[in-house]
Amino acid sequence: MSAVKSVSLQNEIEQKANVNLDTCMQCGCCTGGCSGIDCMDYSPRQVIQLIKKNQRERLLKGKTIWMCVACHICEDRCPAGIRISRLMDALREIAIADSSLKPNMQTVFHKTFLGQVKTFGRTHEGLLMMAYSRKTKTPLPPTKLIIDLLLRMRIGMRPPHIPGKSYRFIIKKVKEGGNVHGA
């Protein structure tokens, strides 16, 4: 991280997400429509301002990037056409690569999810739920719901998929590329 820190956060984000933050006029359309705003510490409009002010720690340690639900309302409405969802993705990617930051419910979920995808090529809702629940010590859904779903044959009971050679090849390639943040 030390080499990256010398680069301004704005440059880093602009490059990673292919956006131009200088076109932001702080109108707040993004924030007006934001679906995650109730649980955020900084609004999307403030996020852009904080990036420009190089407030790396405040953003990476804050709640906003993990409470962005990726609904794309912000970028759909942005009059300057800034791809705000991509910018949030870039911030999350920087945060998850930074080992000094504490894991949270969202980082555990994403890593568990992608770990399963890398192994099986697909996700298995039941196994994912159980693995996540075990890692985070969160309770499984209510028993009545599980029973009703089972009675309606809505929970997949077959073993996970086994992906072919070409799939394992690309996963190996991605790992070699060094952009994998582990399962």
């Binding site: 990726a70 993705d89 999350r92 990617e93 998850i96 980082t107 979920f109 994403h110 890593k111 999810f113 992608l114 995808v117 890398k118 991605v174 590329g177 952009n179 994998v180 943040h181």
Partner: peptide, 9 residues
């Protein structure tokens, strides 16, 4: 999760 934390994957 893919686009959220690992755009290469």
């Amino acid at each position: 999760s893919g686009h959220s934390i690992d755009h290469t994957l």
